[in-house]
Write a protein that binds this DNA or RNA. Structure first.
Lengths: 157, 157
DNA sequence: TTGAATTAATTGTAAAATACAAACATTGTA
DNA sequence: TACAATGTTTGTATTTTACAATTAATTCAA
């Protein structure tokens, strides 16, 4: 009979393994989806995050904030943004109240691309979701929500 | 009142978004964990996958199989493996029954590294899991399992 | 109010990762 | 035995990346 502590450790271990496998699988899908829309993985992450941030917060995102969210260095991000500006997918101007900061937001074409990318990913997720027994679907969504909330509460993330 | 179809679409959309955010967060943790153990992200994925495959299947992994699992080209993987062999973390020999294939497996030191990496990630997951209400934990584990099973069934993955 | 310290972003540079195509090695087959 | 097929490696060029130094804007303090 396992002790409560051991059970807890096992659960964590299992969760970690599942997360690892899931992450890898999904990152491959993301790469493929991005390829289809002729952007790189990081570029797709930028488009996604800029869109999400603008929608949710109603304000623009600075380079510093974005690089922290994406886990890349400022210099890398600066060049990636340049590339997206060149492709006419992003606007980048200086924030008027403090001209050190950037205001980054999507061009109309950037919006289209972001939507396109999302659809590409949705089609993968659709397939996966269709393989989830229908009686488990609500539970899955709820659990993912619980997990995300926990992630947001955690200092490590 | 939403139609059933629209509800279904919304669920997928939500699942996709949650997966995207989760993936990004977790990949940053993985990067950090790998850094701590002075390997790159891809190297850590190699160690993880080789270990997992050997444990589960009891046979060694070929380069072709591994590159498909990790979503990188053969040439990239070949060099990454070389680097891990140089660091004495991987063995790479030719499979005797068909000497075209490689047998890849962890050295004792590789095993230690893999375990170390796992612990690093476990500590992150531990924190996240501790922020999941205890009455939701079993459900979360079950849901992740369901999701993984669905992923494995899906052609796109 | 001016100059130093602080903060945000960019750029110079070098190293690492990556993919494609060609080459190499081994095995299967006509 | 020749040659097609399969798995891996290597040549090459491109891309990505980070660190450190630089530039630009702001804040703070004497």
């Amino acid at each position: 009979m396992m002790s409560i502590e051991t059970q807890f450790e096992n659960q964590q271990y299992k969760l970690r393994q599942m997360l690892q496998i899931l992450m890898r699988t999904f990152s491959i899908l993301e790469k493929e989806g991005a390829r289809c829309c002729s952007v790189t993985l990081v570029e797709s992450h930028i488009l996604f995050e800029v869109k999400r941030y603008n929608d949710q917060k109603g304000t623009d995102l600075s380079l510093n904030e974005l690089s922290a969210k994406l886990g890349v260095s400022n210099s890398t991000l600066s060049r990636q943004i340049q590339s997206l500006v060149d492709k006419n997918l992003l606007y980048r101007t200086h924030y008027n109240n403090d001209r050190r900061y950037l205001s980054i937001y999507l061009t109309p074409e950037g919006e289209r691309y972001e939507k396109e990318l999302g659809k590409e990913l949705d089609s993968y997720v659709q397939e996966i979701f269709s393989n989830v027994p229908s009686e488990k679907r609500m539970q899955l969504l709820e659990s993912m929500d619980v997990l995300l909330t926990a992630v947001e509460k955690s200092d490590c993330c």
